[in-house]
Amino acid sequence: MAAADAPITPEGQAAAHAARQAKLRKRSSGRLMIFGFLSPSLAILLFMVAYPVFSLVYYSFFNFSALRQATMKPVGLKNYTFLLSDPELWERFVFTGKFVFICVTLQMLIGIFVGYQLQKNFRGRDVIFTILMMPMMLSPVVVGFLWRYMLNSEWGIVNFLLSSVGLPKVDWLGQTNAALWAAAAADTWMWAPFIALLATAAFRGIPETIYEAAEVDGASPAYRFFRITLPMSAPVLFIALILRLIDSFKQYDLFVALTGGGPGSSTETVSYAVAKTAFSYFYTGEASALAVILLLIITGLSLILVRHLTKMSEKY
């Protein structure tokens, strides 16, 4: 292209040659860059994700315990059929589902509401912002212990406050339903600020003139919020939703510290069950099968969600 326009003089030919060389160099340097920049990540992914996942699938077909590694008995699909016919596992899925639903709903509602208030400019916003974000900076284990401490039925602050306004005390961690709500309250306490953070970032990304146009067009504040603010930040809010959906689905740390899976095994999430099977009972084969099931669900879920996200952000 450039070469065709160049006059046929020694200088022109030299220039064309140099351009060709530069183009070649550019292309190969691009390849080199892609390869060089991606290989560390790829190596880590292969070693820490692909290899373990394939091994898990492999182990899931064996009757095998980490304690007695010498005896590995192939059992085919037995681990899976056993798990899938086990009513206890279904209970865990139901509990996990309830937990995810409550958490994500509360967190999205609170996060969007608080995020909308925080996007406005007001004095001291940065400090208030940082203070409100504190729960998500804590370790989930600390959060679990803190809420366990506050929710203690006898000397916890929550029951003290309830009884001081004349409400009955609740045995928060001793009853199945109360424990579910306690865990949801702790998880929401921790993660609603995260949604608020992402929502604020998304809301502030909407140009001022869009709001002005909407105001001039006669849209009420509520109409503006639902027809402009929310849909325009939908892709970011959807990312927040994906992250929280997946994270609460695999929640483990919080339950270790808050309920220990109790009362009984009523607050065991699927993750908790994997850990218990693998590291308390050392049924490694069975745990592998359960882990594979969990992985399939989460991967499937995130594939669907991410595909939807891509479709969503393509529109803009």
Binding site: E212, E215, G218, S220
Partner: peptide, 16 residues
């Protein structure tokens, strides 16, 4: 602005 029955076109495109 929403109560004044005005219409406005902005310098930088402000379509939704």
């Amino acid at each position: 602005a929403s109560e004044r029955n005005i219409a406005m076109v902005f310098q930088f495109v402000s379509l939704y």
